[in-house]
Nucleic acid binder design. Sequence first.
DNA 1: CCGATTGTGGATGTCAATATCCGTTTTAGC
DNA 2: GCTAAAACGGATATTGACATCCACAATCGG
Lengths: 153, 153
Amino acid sequence: MLSQTVEYALRAVVYLASESPAARTTDEIAAKTLVPKAYLSKVVQGLVRSGIVRSRRGVGGGVMLSESPEHVTILDVVNAVEPIQRIHTCPLGLVSHGARLCPLHKRLDAAMAAMEQAFAATTLAEVLADPSKSVPLCDVKARPKPKKKRASR
Amino acid sequence: MLSQTVEYALRAVVYLASESPAARTTDEIAAKTLVPKAYLSKVVQGLVRSGIVRSRRGVGGGVMLSESPEHVTILDVVNAVEPIQRIHTCPLGLVSHGARLCPLHKRLDAAMAAMEQAFAATTLAEVLADPSKSVPLCDVKARPKPKKKRASR
DNA sequence: CCGATTGTGGATGTCAATATCCGTTTTAGC
DNA sequence: GCTAAAACGGATATTGACATCCACAATCGG
């Protein structure tokens, strides 16, 4: 249902939120979120273009959230990567009845609206603050303390 | 968001519902719903396999709804063609925390649930009975009376 | 200025969704 | 049984999503 790219983008952004406001390299994000390194860099480029994250090249560079986690909703991220397709006009070519949607597409759009609403309802900060064990992604090593990590890659 | 195949399947099924319980040929369905003829036949085959519609070959044959329009929901059709992907287990490989979803995927699944709910809430009969001008699909020629139609194809 | 690091952009490969075509099978009517 | 109608099934494009690789540009520490 949701594209793989959206899934990847959300993982990356949630991880960045958990480290906010620090920057992280795409290599590290990829390792932590289990996203293919090369592809993640493309996904991140999209996030940069849409303004969700900012990047800096070179030594000590990386990617960071543009805004604080309380100000970014899941919908913001989804729309940045692959906008929710609301149905505004008849998918059949017929212009015959103007802007009014037929009964079927009215329902389909309502379903899209419901999903959009669900995405808009949660900020990254709320995801991180979730009561059910603060495990950011599905596991991401459960980062207990910001201790110097090395190896693994 | 929704695949083209789902869109086509819904158009076909809504059209069949409007003609229910009569059977219609895929050629006619294609013409009325503006779906590519050859591809529609594949989509319909899927609907047959999943039991949403029944078909009969040969002269006078065609495709018809298996059940009356009141008994078929939009969700039934969607799931027959391309099941809504609920998130039951962590998309990352990690089995480490069992069946429990992380905060992020709990939200994503909630969004899927919202959409599923919206689809489940409407039957084909309700789509046809919609108050806003009973235009079945977006237009489908507005079929005023079941008068003998010919030509057009 | 030099070199290591890190994001950027382009070229390319792979695969599933979309779409078309056509021969085969089933069925009804004669 | 013969023929026309119609669904079925397989083979084959075409396209975009997913993914990889690599040369280049920017940036920092010395």
